[in-house]
Amino acid sequence: MRRDIPLLITGIAGVVFIVQYFIPHFPFNRFSNWFSDWFSIVAACAIWLGALNLFKLSLEKIHARREGWGYAVITIVCFLLMTVVGFSEGRDYSKVGTGFDWLYNYVYSPLSSTMFAILAFFVASASYRAFRARNFEATLLLIAAFLVMLGRVPIGDLLSGFMPPGMRLSQLATWIMQFPNTAGQRAILIGISLGIVSSSLRLILGIERSYLGGD
């Protein structure tokens, strides 16, 4: 029973949302909008579960004085600071000039963009480590990456300056992006979509049910 009802719900919802695509008639024409509204409301409710979990784990850590409990204190204080400021600003919480906006600009945003920027270092270490001519496939990966990188900076055209115009490295890089890259992306995209069709069908038919848990 606890498992059959959810399976039924998944199946019916799946069929309805396939069918709505082909029916312009009310109410089917609204279904996808409704779903996105409903989902955002459910997600907004569910974040209470997440936040409570974050609180619970941090408090347990602090209470037991487990290693790193001090950091848990910082997390909770920052969370409370952000929520108190955010709720006290009202619905225009993110307007330019509010305290919430200040915290966003000077705390959230530097942290976020720096974490993103770290990626530059990892691109370098991955290039050093992973682009090795272990076999033919790896060599192709390496050569394609090398040529495209070379073609993206002025040095590439300097090195290939002796070639007739139209065959310089920057153009070669563009060609690789335009043709072989398109071919690969297309094959991947078609494959992915067929994979989605079949795994969606498994979910709708109730063959795949591990996400629903046990009885």
Partner: peptide, 29 residues
């Protein structure tokens, strides 16, 4: 780093908590 990480988690979780509330629960519903 650990201090920054703790601040980041706290501030960003708070940010989304507030944003979800005002943008979804309040404004939408």
């Amino acid at each position: 780093y650990k201090v920054c990480e703790a601040i980041f988690v706290g501030i960003s979780a708070g940010y989304w908590f507030v944003a979800y509330f005002w943008d979804n629960l309040y404004t939408k519903f």
